[in-house]
Amino acid sequence: MEKQKAHIDKNNTVIKVRGLEKSFADYDVLRGIDLDLYQGENLVVLGRSGTGKSVLIKLISGLLKPDAGSIEVLGNDVTAISERELQELRIRIGFSFQNSALYDSMTVRKNLEFPLVRNRKGITRDEINKNVESVLDAVGLSHTINQMPSELSGGQRKRIGIARTLILNPEIMLYDEPTAGLDPITCIEINDLINEVQANYKTSSIIITHDLTCAKHTGDRIAMLLEGQFQRVGTFDEVFATDDNRVKPFYDYNFTE
């Protein structure tokens, strides 16, 4: 399925990152990241393994604390707000983990209900069931409702993980390698799902991947993370119109034989 033209509001920046730095022990992972995510846009972050892509979105969601720089999400300074405000902000951000991170001890239904019943006070049983069924339907896995995560395939787990974040109607989605380790057909399904989420839930998203097909399919803009900074940012064709041997292999590996 081809991607529809997205409605991007360039005057509305939902995530604004400036001069972000983060090191672990003596390894400087991020060395001055600047990033703007506009309302309604899908931004793909590309980069080699270990360049700090997961670290970047963990910083954005406040799971890690930066060494330097500022992170503004939906008008809140993530590094400065209180625990309570951060919790409220997180409800508006969906985070799909690299390895799905489903709660193993709970059924699919309980997984989906977990964030819902804890964040929507006074929600009725009927509303809960309706919400659960609607997100499951959105990811096309209604029949798995009573299964345990261990009974699902990798692709199904990814989709349930995405459903679990959609249930709170997030304004921002952060996808950490949504297609990694999946077969091509499932990849296409996930790519379509990401585009459907963008269109139907009006989300702005950051999609982390090294899968260029996914990048091309879902991304309105691509940012290439190189040596701790975004060194190439633009449309898919702009980013790959280069002979830089840190960038070209990504393209060659995926698209030339």
């Binding site: 963990k58 799971l63 997180r90 985070f95 983990f97 991170a101 193993d104 977990f114 964030p115 804890r118």
Partner: peptide, 14 residues
Amino acid sequence: VTEQIDAMEVSGTK
């Protein structure tokens, strides 16, 4: 290790 605790954290639960 499987980031389930992080997942709870980022979904606004405690």
